[in-house]
Nucleic acid binder design. Structure first.
Lengths: 211, 211, 211, 211
DNA sequence: GATGAATGAGTCTTCATTCAT
DNA sequence: GATGAATGAAGACTCATTCAT
């Protein structure tokens, strides 16, 4: 069993500490408030120390976003029971996504309003790393759709664009909530969205999202 | 009829000039490239002069966005024939929206990636002015939906959330295009979206978006 | 007669002030001590103000060097009596060059030890501006040589390389003095150099540099 | 015979390694690119380790320059046949100097443009160590001159200043070449310089540098 | 002896806003 | 009203040197 060296632990701790500080600042004041000074101070590290762990400010921010994106995705995926029916899984996914996003509402307020980092390239080359998370999530939706269509549970829609739309609608719903613009409760909104999806994918006669 | 004073004309001209410069810079280089220096230079006005027309930089940017939002909305609305059927009008609306957004792709690339200005408050007070345009557009969609539903052309969906979803899907589609992430042609994407809406709103038997 | 505007005077004053501060710092502590902070403080200007007059640090330094180079060249050239004989003029030139360089000994200590700025390129493009001064001076020497050769006062040497060597020897002599490495007095060194040149250019029988 | 301890060998190896890395960096990117990090990385030594061999950065650089100066001097001196005539030896010396300097053109580009390290004092005290090499070389020239004068092969010039001038001219010639400012080929330039020296030191009637 | 993580002062540069003219 | 010079706070990034391990 590999013994973890003390320095590796410290290294790891520092990295986490920096990412957490960064995330907190982003959540509280937005990307423009992320200054190396502030991050370092909050992480209890000297300013120059950040550069031992991250090449530059952009890398730090992207890493912080990636971490939270990854965590959210994991959170969503664990809420989906792989043995459930496609429709059930879709419900769990959409509902889970909104719940998870709501949990991280402070951070998401910034993340959704300010997507400058999505496409910006790093020093090394083009960096669309952040888009990967979105793609992975869409793929998840698509798999569910495909199974549902195969099993004649869903209408025979084109799974790729529909997966895209479902995700966008879910994100939009969450965004509206997070920005404080939602007209109704979370529960009502999720139900509304699921009813909408049910209308679309399932038989006209059975639009009960619970089933 | 009020006689327009010379100074009022000049005032107006300067304002337009400033807004246009601002818009151009946003489109070409993003919000962070909007510096008072650059705007003034491009508008042929002294830097200090901007403050005669706008309280501060944020106000200037919001005004520039508002102008373009207003223009786009007008552009979309003129493409809708008020005497056409609800479905036709919805098609015209969605299609028009994507076309108009595509026309302003450079500006939208920034506007969609960076929505920081949507909520930020001005010196004076809260500024959700920009959200008005979105609301107005959603309302437009809702009116169409309501008429369609009343006339039994559309399924009896809840018009408010569906209007919201339709707009979000359309914007997402345009955004994906503008960022260069779209998987197919504009035409194909619009058709896909309309087919999706047709599936949702209309009779299962008649999904031809053209009709 | 053009009336000089007040602002133009101020502008000029600021520029001079900045260049003088820069020169002083270079003379006292070398190029690496030239920081924008220090220059601004010494010139009594806010740090950002420097950028109203110079594009960047490099431009500021080059301008400071250029100013002093130009001044020195002028100083040397006014010591040469254009009606004197070629040999006399050469003596005046060499002697004047060493005197003038000695006057600016502090600055030259740095300038001669650190010629990094001679070739470095500016933001705009290649900048060998500083070499122009050296070329102009060499050309001056060459003209004297050519006249002397034409009038059979000097040996028929190749004027271009000899002008180069004469200048290099003079500069080397001044440099050695300025660095405090000179073995004898300024007077003695100049005489030694002129004797050397006399030996080279003039008749073997008449090596009296005074004649 | 002293037995060389293992640690002494290692010590020596490390020192050489560090000096070589330093030299390479100077040659490739100039003094300002010499960072302890880079040197250590290139030498395969930990950064802190440098301080076991050199008191500080300045000492390291000076040592690197010294090494190359020493090597160049050796290179020049081996090209001089001690049994040849003074004139011949002088030719070999000048020619050899230019050849050797040309061999190290990359390093010399920096060394000649940036002589900051010549005089700067180390932590311990004044450091004119580097000037020793120049002095040794000048002395070499002087010895040749003195012998030539004694044997009536050269004109009876004052050997010390003339040695200084000869060296300065040679260095200037090499410098101009290394900076890419030379007007003609290396061969032509050496010949020009030797003709110049011949003119000066030898009989007016026999200026063939080959003889 | 060796390591390399950590420090933190130091550097250039940008820019919104003000205000004397 | 209009100008644009001046301000000065702020920010990203570097690097020689130290020191706990």
């Amino acid at each position: 069993m590999a013994r973890v060296s003390r320095s590796a632990i410290l290294q790891d701790y520092r990295t986490r500490s920096l990412l957490e500080s960064t995330r907190k600042i982003i959540a509280a004041h937005g990307f423009d408030a992320v200054t190396m000074d502030r991050v370092a101070a909050q992480a209890g590290i000297a300013k120059g120390g950040i550069y031992l762990y991250f090449r530059n400010k952009h890398e730090l921010i992207v890493a912080a976003i990636e971490e939270i994106a990854s965590e959210m995705l994991r959170g969503i995926e664990t809420r989906v029971d792989p043995r459930a029916s496609p429709w059930k899984r879709l419900c769990q996914l959409v509902c889970g996504q909104i719940e998870v996003m709501e949990q991280h509402r402070d951070l998401l307020r910034t993340l959704l309003l300010d997507r400058r980092h999505l496409l910006r390239r790093t020093g090394g080359g083009p960096s669309r790393r952040l888009l990967k998370y979105r793609e992975r999530h869409e793929l998840h939706i698509r798999k569910i759709l495909e199974e549902g269509i195969r099993r004649r549970i869903f209408q025979p829609v084109d799974p790729a664009p529909v997966a895209f739309y479902i995700n966008e609608m879910t994100v939009s719903t969450a965004q509206r909530r997070v920005l404080g613009l939602a007209p109704s409760s979370q529960k009502a909104e999720v139900e509304g969205l699921l009813r909408f999806l049910s209308l679309l994918l399932r038989d006209r006669q059975s639009t009960d999202p619970k089933s």
